[in-house]
Amino acid sequence: MNFFAELLISAALVVSGVFGFVGSFGLIKLKHPLQRLHAPTKATTLGVGGVLIASMIFFFAKTGHVSVHELLITLFLFLTAPITANFIAKAYMSRNLRKGDLPDPPGEYGWSVYDDPPESRSDRP
C-alpha cells in the first residue's frame, strides 16, 4: 500500500473520529430532548461516512477490487436513520407537547399527531 493511500485513509478516519466525538459530546451538552435529536444525525452521516470511505480506499488499495458493502451500509443508514429520528420526535410530541406549543400549519387541518386526516382516503383502486 503506498503512502498516498495511507494518508487518505488516515485523514478519513480522523474526520470520522472528530464528528463521532462531536455527536456524542452534543448529547451531553444539549439539554432539551429535541436538541439532542440533532446530535446523533452528525454521527450517522459524516462520522460513519468517514469510516466507510476509509474502508473502501483500504480494500481498493489492498485487493484492487472495489468493495460495494460500504455503499450498501450508506444506503441502509439513509433509509433507517430518518425514520428513527421521526419516531423519537413523534413520541416526544405526543407525550410532552400540546397543540398550542407548536406553530399552526398554514392549511385548515392541524398536525397529524393531534388531528385526523380530512377523510380516510383509500389508496386501493
Binding site: 440533532h38 430518518p82 421521526n86 413523534k90 400549519p105 392549511g107 387541518y109 392541524g110 386526516p117 380530512p118
Partner: peptide, 22 residues
Amino acid sequence: GTITMTPGTVSATLAADGSAIL
C-alpha cells in the same frame, strides 16, 4: 428524509392533510 439527514434540521410531523411539514 433529506431534512432529517441534513444536520441541524429534523422533520417532526406532517399536517393531517399533507399540506405542510413541521
